[in-house]
Design a binder for these strands. Sequence first.
DNA 1: GAAAACCTCTGACCCCGGTCAGAGAACCTC
DNA 2: GAGGTTCTCTGACCGGGGTCAGAGGTTTTC
Lengths: 290, 290
Amino acid sequence: MEAEQIEQVRDFNRYYTRRLGLLTDQYLGQDRPLGQARLLFEIGDGGDLRDLRARLGLDSGYLSRLLRALEDQGLVTVGVHPGDGRVRVATLTAAGRAERADLDDRSRERIAGLLDGLDDAQRDQLLAAQRQIHRLLRLATVTVERVPGAAEQARACLRRYAAELGERFPEGYDAAALTPPAEVTGEQLLACEDGIPVGCGLWTHLAPDVAEIRHLWVAPEARGLGLGRLLLERLERGAAADGVTTVRLGTHTALTEAIALYRRSGYREAADYSDSPYNQLAFEKSLQSS
Amino acid sequence: MEAEQIEQVRDFNRYYTRRLGLLTDQYLGQDRPLGQARLLFEIGDGGDLRDLRARLGLDSGYLSRLLRALEDQGLVTVGVHPGDGRVRVATLTAAGRAERADLDDRSRERIAGLLDGLDDAQRDQLLAAQRQIHRLLRLATVTVERVPGAAEQARACLRRYAAELGERFPEGYDAAALTPPAEVTGEQLLACEDGIPVGCGLWTHLAPDVAEIRHLWVAPEARGLGLGRLLLERLERGAAADGVTTVRLGTHTALTEAIALYRRSGYREAADYSDSPYNQLAFEKSLQSS
DNA sequence: GAAAACCTCTGACCCCGGTCAGAGAACCTC
DNA sequence: GAGGTTCTCTGACCGGGGTCAGAGGTTTTC
């Protein structure tokens, strides 16, 4: 990686935070301490203090005092949780909601003021570039790790996968078919974003030089990042390193994005090799060592 | 402007600042208060306390205490200004320079760690998108205002313009030729970024329905933003509103970017209308009312 | 029903960023 | 050289963010 690229990113960050400081921090800290403002937003439609503390990462004493301040201003009421007398819940009063909406408006106005200086085409360019950066940064922070077949996080992914297939297949889906093989002879990968699982995939041996890729799935909230391609490439690389020269996989005609991904990645339709009723299409790819 | 666009910008800002908080603030405030870290950077190769105060916007008492803290840590020495005994100057010690370099490195490493998750093509995309945003934000914050012909900031622009022409014209340039007409019958525009002049331009009447555009210039530090085009459009719009149907302008063959801009903007080469020796090329455009 | 676990609040405390008033030294002007 | 100006430092002060220990309730467990 070039030092110049790093410098450019730093420059951009400097510029952007400076501009943003003018756009964001000030609007929040208008006449209210920042902590209070953040809390006002986070309370939203009410919440346990326990939750709020966790979400904002606050000390219990600190939170308590912030809430008192907001209560004194008539923006918040704190009551007892109906189910558990130890827990307390905060809710916004009408004045609190108005105040929050007001902060929100001011923020929006600032952004509008900025966008005002651009014409339509330029605005579209700006938004497109932002989407691009957002996408790339998310992708860059995703970690992909090898995990044992029984890993709980991987199973959680498979459960979500099964639920999705049940919705998407016209004939429904029997979750039993997704159970991972008793022992994975290849490897299973788990993708996490900020510690939360957002994708998985595995390959096993069908023969010493033939592998099957299965359970390749990306969580809906992480789609469009290019994570499917990333997982697929890692799986292929792992298999190739293990002597595999041919990769097969089966899929269902309802999974159109997956099929498109396979085609883009060099897979060609092949004779069916599986007896699963859900594998309506079979694909194959030879791995050239590179 | 669509509410949705504003929301998207806000979302991006939220995401980016969160990510950046992990990338930037922490590295600075590693084990040193933020104020001290900023000061460490700003001192650089030494500087008057007076300057530092102005640049960082600090109270003299506060600065004094920050410096004491850094001095106690052996990172900075404060001496007397050779020329003026009242003024004091701060310089980094070897340890101070090392510390600064260290902070710098840590920042760089964070960025490198982020970019690590991307392949070459994605990195290029990221940088391109950042450049795009940077450009558009700068353009969005530029203000363009009508100013009287004698405005000091406009004259400053013209002086810089003349200096540049002197360098770029093989035959040199006589600054007298740039003096604005005694009275501008049209209007003069001044573009400023953060209050600093970065461009200018004006039009005057050659006849009731014919205008000449002159002194269209963009400061080197603001080139590539699309500011030239912006100024040109505003001038044309202003002239059109005043009944002008034909705009003329003359330029020099050495000013290739300007010529390209005129061509892009619908100007066609025309017969020379001016007697200025620097106007080697003449352009003309009819304004259709729109 | 007693002990343990859980949740919240209170008071005390810390550091940092920031401001103010005034003292003191050096400089400039006349 | 007197008097005003400029620059810096010191001490005092404030508010906000943040942490800690412990008191006091409520709930769960045994």
